[in-house]
Design a protein around this nucleic acid. Structure first.
Length: 295
DNA sequence: GTCCTTGTCGGT
DNA sequence: ACCGACAAGGAC
């Protein structure tokens, strides 16, 4: 049984001599693989040990590389990675906001790596994932993890209690874990402007959502804000979408071609006169988020 | 059972 | 540092 989040008797800073010790203690079960997880369940733990050239470690934020695509003996990337197995598990953890135990192994490439052995460094959340050409010019999947602190950590504990309850049920088929995806939404002047331009209708499905307090829509950035994407907060990088199509767009469920035809789903993007969309951003989204292999 | 993996060891 | 040999455990 896969256990997400904290484990009884496990504390940040705990040290483990080798992978077998980590495995037998249940902190990270696989003896070699860096990602522990099932592709339909999510990932419960990862090991950051500097094996992949595209990893970046900033302490509370880690850009972790998915697995696969490497030559067995040299460790060099020799083919494109696919969104399967552990990579898919991490994507699942991202969508459902599951906590991931992070263990760092000793190596020279990171200032945050332990001097020796392996060290449990607490719970992280998978904030985002995308694909990119790595240093060796092959596609790698990348996962941005952010450390969970304070209040957020308490939420994860609640999640774990729910799971414990779930685990103890006889009929596991009929029970399910309630998970909440926490989306941080900032309603800037610009996002409000784009929503008003479209009268709060989705540019994909034309749905206009009405609530007790008025209409609801979301402004979606085509090229995401923040590192490493660094898309601009400007009208030519924004879409007005319903929540469903916003999630689908962010998680690569569909892309937009330069003639505004949709790929992955049927249809064409509706565009109001005067809304100029930058096609470089559409291409960026296609390259980094849309994945046709996994459908 | 088959395939996979950010291991580990001992050689050079 | 690099390489081959061998390997445990899990996903599927």
């Amino acid at each position: 049984m896969r256990i997400f989040g904290e484990l009884p008797g496990l504390y940040e800073g705990d040290s483990f001599r080798n992978r077998l010790e980590l495995s037998q203690s249940g902190v990270h079960k696989p003896t070699q693989a860096g990602i522990s997880g099932g592709q339909n369940e999510g990932a419960d733990s990862i090991i950051v040990s500097g094996g992949y050239e595209d990893d970046e470690d900033y302490g509370d934020i880690i850009i972790y590389t998915g697995h696969g695509g490497r030559d067995l003996s040299t460790g060099k990337q020799v083919t494109n990675q696919e969104l399967v197995r552990g990579n898919l598990a991490l994507a699942e953890s991202c969508k459902n906001g599951l906590p991931v135990r992070v263990i760092r192994g000793a190596h020279r490439k990171s200032n945050f790596a332990p001097e020796d052995n392996y060290r449990y460094d607490g719970l992280f959340r998978v904030e985002d994932y995308w694909k990119e050409k790595g240093k060796s010019n092959f596609i790698v999947w990348r996962f941005r993890l952010r450390k969970i602190e304070g209040e957020l950590k308490k939420q994860s504990n609640v999640l774990q209690e729910e799971q414990a309850e779930y685990n103890s049920k006889e009929d596991k088929q009929t029970k399910r874990i309630e998970t909440r995806v926490q989306r941080i939404v900032r309603d800037t002047i610009l996002s409000k402007k784009i929503k008003e331009k479209y009268k709060y209708t989705c540019q994909v499905c034309d749905t206009q959502i009405e609530t007790s307090s008025g209409y609801y829509a979301e402004a979606a950035h085509i090229k995401p804000l923040g590192a490493p994407h660094n898309g601009p907060d400007s009208e030519d990088n924004l879409l007005c979408l319903c929540p469903n199509h916003h999630v689908m767009f962010d998680y690569g469920g569909f892309g937009i071609l330069k003639n505004f035809e949709l790929i992955g789903i049927e249809g064409k993007l509706k565009i109001m006169k005067g809304h100029l969309i930058n096609k470089d951003y559409l291409r960026y989204h296609l390259e980094h988020f849309y994945d046709e292999k996994n459908r």
